[in-house]
Design a protein around this nucleic acid. Structure first.
Lengths: 134, 134
DNA sequence: GTAAGCACTATACTAAAGGATACCACTATA
DNA sequence: TATAGTGGTATCCTTTAGTATAGTGCTTAC
C-alpha cells in the first residue's frame, strides 16, 4: 500500500530468487530465445488453431482470422523449421497439404497456458479499471 | 482418399483440451494480449534486470547489454503504462531517477519462468542437434 | 575551463514485419 | 466459357522496431 522507497530486500520467490549477474544474463538470454521462436503476431494463434488436429492451408487461413496467405506461408515455414509442425503433402488431384503439430510443440504448453491465463486476467483487470476510472 | 481428416480425437491435455471454436478464439486472443504487452526484444530483459531491486537509468542501460538510451526510455515508459514498473524521481542534485518493479509485475512470474525454462531446454536441444549433425 | 556523469530527448536512418493485390498451374462445377 | 477452389509465390507498399549519433541542462571533479 505505502510507497516503500528505501532498500527493501525483495520478497524473494520465483524469478526473483536469481541473484548473480551471470544467472541474470542467462535467464534473460533464455527468455529471449523463447520469445524469438514465438515472435510475431501469428505463431501462437496458428499453434492454437492446429491444436485440435491437422489442418489444410485454406482451413488455417480461415481459422486464423486476418492472416494473409503470404504471412501464413511464411509462419508455417518457420514453425516447420523449429519442429513445431510438420507439413504433409498428399498426391491427390489437386494436391492436398496438411499441417500438424509435432510432439515437440507440446513442450510449449506451459508457456501457452501461462500466457493465456495471464492474458485473461489482464484483460479483466484493464476492463475493470476503465470502468471504475470512467 | 488417403487423407484422414475428421473425427480426430485430440490427445487431450493442457491447451489441447479446448474444444469449441469460441474458446479457441478466446484463447488465441488472450495469448495475443499477453504477447502484446511483452512484445519486442527488451521488455523481459529489463524486467529481469529490475527483478533484483530498483535501478537507475544508467545502471539499467549497462545491465541490459546492447540497449540504447532511446529504446530503454521508450520501453520504460511502456512498462510504466502497463503498471509493471514505477518511476521515482528524487530531488537530489542532479536528479536521481529509480525504476522499480510493481507488485503487479509479479503476476508475470509464471510466464517468465515458463519462457526461461523452455528457452534453456530448447537451446540445449538445438546445440545437441547441431553437434550430432555436424 | 574542460571533461565526465546524470537522465534523457531529437533527428535520421535501416531492417523487419506485415498487408494488399495479383498471379501461377491445376480441376471441378455451372 | 466463366467461376471457384486447391496451395501457394511475387511484387510492392506501409508500419513498426530498433540503431546511430548528437545534444540538452545540470553538477562535480580535475
Amino acid at each position: 500500500m505505502s510507497t516503500v522507497l528505501e532498500a527493501t530486500p525483495p520478497p524473494v520467490n520465483g524469478i526473483h530468487s536469481i541473484h548473480s549477474a551471470a544467472e541474470c544474463t542467462q535467464s534473460a538470454q533464455a527468455v529471449q530465445d523463447a520469445l524469438y521462436v514465438l515472435s510475431g503476431k501469428w505463431k501462437l494463434p496458428i499453434i492454437v488453431a492446429l491444436s485440435t488436429g491437422p489442418r489444410r492451408f485454406g482451413e488455417l487461413q480461415r481459422l486464423v482470422s486476418g492472416i494473409t496467405a503470404k504471412v501464413l506461408s511464411k509462419e508455417l515455414k518457420e514453425l516447420e523449421m523449429n519442429e513445431f509442425a510438420v507439413r504433409r503433402v498428399y498426391a491427390t488431384m489437386p494436391v492436398t497439404v496438411e499441417y500438424e503439430l509435432t510432439a515437440y510443440s507440446q513442450s510449449l504448453n506451459s508457456i501457452i497456458e501461462a500466457l493465456r491465463d495471464w492474458g485473461i486476467q489482464h484483460r479483466a483487470r484493464i476492463l475493470g479499471k476503465s470502468k471504475s476510472v470512467d
